[in-house]
Amino acid sequence: MFARTAWTVFRKDLTVEVRTRETLATTLFFALSAVIVFAVALVRDGRVVADAAAGILWVAIAFAGTLTLGRTFERERYTDTLRALLLAPAPRAAIYVGKLLAVVAVLLLTELMLVPLVALLFDAALLQRPGLLVALLVTGTIGFASVGTLFAAMLVRARSRDVLLPVLLYPITIPVIIAGVRGTAALAQLVPDEPMATFWVMLLAAFDTVFVTLALWTFDPLMTD
């Protein structure tokens, strides 16, 4: 029952996304614009500041993530379907999991295109250890989205939700950003620092476990009026 509800919500969101490609297209383009802005700031005499690529990648992911979260729930708010979704005779936590998976899927698709782009534009050796990089991206994205999905769901009813989402999300997800940036930077070195990257993946995995549990635990009382 739990898994089926989560799967249904996930498939619903993904179907909407595949049909309109609204979030993916706009988010990707937005991430690209962010990358350009950083290039202007961080490229000097045609050369990139050390570790800049890792930072740019993760800041673009964080920006794109905020946008994706906002869009996903704005759609629900616009058609007033979130209430219907919550009224459905299904475990609330399953709805959260479905939404989380959809956000993570969209973000991973964005990253799939963002990583080669950053690697190419900033001449960064991001793909030396693809396995560890994927682990960093997946655990980081889940960590970012686990907190983000909960807050975005709660902000649907709030007045100034567009401003409040990043205001709440960024300070809490700073560990994810630090781990992502430092881990990616460790991988992009001339000699990839594997133990360092593994440490950051472990930290992200612990973060994911704690915050997904916490979100599942608080989603029900939070979404009850």
Partner: peptide, 14 residues
């Protein structure tokens, strides 16, 4: 301050 109705719960979550 700016969350509107239901912000007490949101603040609790934060």
């Amino acid at each position: 301050r700016y969350g509107g109705p239901g912000s007490d719960k949101l603040a609790a979550a934060v």
